[in-house]
């Protein structure tokens, strides 16, 4: 009774992936097997700290005996499964997912997409020229069930101006692929603040506060749990957004150092992302037992007192 509980030993199952026999722990996913086997599997909505949402479908694989393709990120391993990760069917769906997303969302800063497009031969431009960006608030005002006949000359997109309604972070929903990670992280899976939701339906779905009120009017507590999980740069700290916007972004002059938050006694690990001796972003290791990648407003944004212009030294303000 006084001893530390040990993990229950898991049974292993045998399955075949691309003709190779693999053994995997029961309870794991096909994605786990693929990754362990070095089978490169694209993912967008998958997050290591979140329950898979299966929303993007870019990780689909062919599982013999099932009618449709299955998402590797959430499909559990079972004895005797026969899986194909690079069949024509798989390649087709992955290509189309990349084309459908690429044609409707700005994926310019999403890690991996350029290489996947090349690998699957995806051509997001094939649906025609992109429609003009929506005006601010236009997509948020969409009425569910109201149909608008498409303009045959262009392909619809989610392009819209970024929302800059608070000093700490920017919501650039033209880059949002609706992976739901921010909603889940702000909601029941971590922060439990529920400041944001998926609103509307179909192509009009958007991540929104209630009635699209500004973040300062919403329940947001600025822990940045959403920023930490966003895979596409749709959510960025203002400091990083501004570096990118002004063209000052210089990855070669950046470094990241992990330390501990200076505020309360919980001991959250902070990874400070620094360019030219200025912190532009704070994250936390997603595999750390204290934070699981999450922080509060103080940890995420409370670093300003050590930023240039540096606080007053004996000889006056310093840089």
């Amino acid at each position: 009774m006084t001893t530390q509980p040990v993990e229950v030993a898991r049974r292993t199952v045998a399955l075949t992936v691309d003709g190779q026999l693999h053994h995997a722990a029961e309870g794991g996913t096909l994605l786990d097997v693929c990754r362990a086997a070095g089978v490169d599997t694209p993912t967008l909505c998958y997050g290591d700290t979140l329950t898979p949402r299966n929303a993007c479908r870019v990780c689909v694989v062919e599982l013999e005996g099932t009618r449709t393709l299955v998402p590797a990120c959430s499909r559990k391993v079972e004895e005797g499964q026969v899986v194909h990760t690079d069949s024509e069917r798989v390649r087709h769906s992955r290509k189309l997912v990349l084309e459908l997303l690429g044609s409707s969302v700005d994926l310019s800063v999403t890690d991996g997409v350029a290489a996947w497009n090349e690998r699957y031969g995806a051509d997001p431009a094939r649906f025609g020229p992109a429609a003009a960006p929506a005006a601010a608030g236009e997509r948020d005002a969409a009425v569910t069930g109201e149909h608008h006949l498409p303009d045959p000359a262009v392909a619809a997109t989610v392009a819209q101006p970024p929302k800059e309604d608070n000093p700490l972070y920017v919501r650039d929903y033209g880059k949002c692929i609706l992976c739901y990670k921010c909603v889940d992280a702000c909601g029941e899976q971590w922060q439990n603040t529920f400041a944001i939701t998926a609103a509307g339906r179909g192509f009009s779905v958007r991540i929104a506060t209630e009635f699209d009120v500004s973040l300062p009017d919403s329940a947001c507590v600025y822990g940045g749990t959403c920023l930490a999980v966003c895979p596409t740069g749709a959510l960025l700290p203002t400091a990083e957004f501004d570096l990118r916007r002004t063209g000052a972004w210089a990855p070669e002059r950046q470094h990241a150092t992990t330390t501990v938050c200076p505020y309360c006694g919980v001991g959250c690990n902070l990874t400070l992302h620094v360019q030219d001796n200025e912190i532009f972003k704070v994250s936390s290791p997603s595999d750390h037992s204290v934070t699981h990648g999450n922080l509060c407003i103080k940890g995420r944004f409370g670093y300003v007192h050590v930023q240039p212009p540096k606080r007053r030294g004996p000889d006056g303000p310093d840089r």
Binding site: V58, F127, L149, P152, L178, A198, G200, F203
Partner: peptide, 27 residues
């Protein structure tokens, strides 16, 4: 149009695919 309107919007193939399907049919 019906499928575009009634797609819940959760997954990419359906959310964007129903739009591209309708656009192509309109063309």
């Amino acid at each position: 149009a019906f499928f575009r309107d009634e797609s819940c919007g959760q997954c990419v193939p359906c959310r964007v695919g129903t739009v591209r399907q309708e656009e192509a049919l309109v063309r």
